[in-house]
Amino acid sequence: MRCFPRLLLIDRDGVLNEDLPTSVRTLAEMRLIPAAVAALGAYTATGRRAALITNQGILGRGHVAPQVFGAIQLRLIKALADAGGRLASVHIAPDPRDGLTPRRKPGPGMLLEAMHQHGASPDETLFIGDALTDAEAAAAAGVAFRLVLTGKGAASAAARPDLPAYPSLAAALADLGGAA
Rank of each mutant, 00 (worst) to 15 (best):
D162W: 04
N17P: 02
A120D: 09
L87E: 01
D95Y: 11
L173E: 05
A83N: 00
L16M: 06
D123C: 15
V64K: 03
G151D: 05
A155V: 06
T44C: 02
P21R: 13
P161H: 10
I33H: 10
A45E: 08
T133V: 15
E136F: 05
R61D: 05
I72M: 08
A81L: 08
P106G: 15
I53C: 02
L176I: 15
A50T: 01
G70L: 11
R61C: 02
L20Y: 05
I53G: 00
V64N: 02
G177E: 06
H116F: 15
M115S: 03
L111P: 00
L76S: 00
Q73I: 07
D175F: 00
F69E: 01
I33W: 01
N55Y: 14
N17D: 02
G41H: 12
P161L: 15
P108L: 12
G99A: 10
H116V: 11
A172K: 05
G57R: 11
A135H: 06
A172R: 05
S23Q: 11
V24Y: 01
D162E: 10
R160E: 12
N17H: 04
D98M: 07
G47Q: 07
R104A: 03
P161Q: 08
P34H: 03
A79F: 08
A35S: 14
T150A: 02
L100R: 13
E124C: 07
G85T: 07
D95L: 12
K152D: 12
L147M: 10
K105M: 09
P94D: 10
G85P: 05
V37W: 02
Q67F: 08
D82G: 05
D13W: 10
L169W: 10
L112Q: 14
L173Q: 06
A36P: 02
G129Y: 01
L40T: 01
T101G: 14
L20W: 04
P106Y: 14
A42P: 00
A137T: 04
F4I: 13
S89Q: 04
V64I: 11
L80W: 06
P66I: 09
T133F: 07
R25M: 15
A141N: 08
G177T: 09
P66E: 14
A35D: 08
D19T: 00
V143A: 05
L87Q: 00
M1R: 09
R97W: 14
G84S: 08
L132H: 10
I10V: 12
V148T: 08
L149V: 14
V24E: 00
Q117Y: 02
I53H: 01
A114V: 07
T133Y: 07
L149Y: 11
A45R: 13
T44K: 01
T133Q: 14
A51C: 09
R160C: 13
G57N: 13
R61V: 06
L176D: 06
D134I: 07
L132M: 12
A131R: 08
T150S: 14
D123N: 14
L149E: 10
K152E: 11
R49D: 07
P21N: 08
C3D: 07
L87R: 03
K105P: 02
A83D: 00
V90D: 01
R160L: 10
I128G: 03
A140G: 07
G99R: 12
L163C: 14
A140F: 12
A36S: 15
T133P: 03
R75Q: 15
E124G: 06
H91I: 05
L74I: 12
A51L: 01
R97L: 08
R104V: 12
L16H: 01
G14Y: 09
H63D: 09
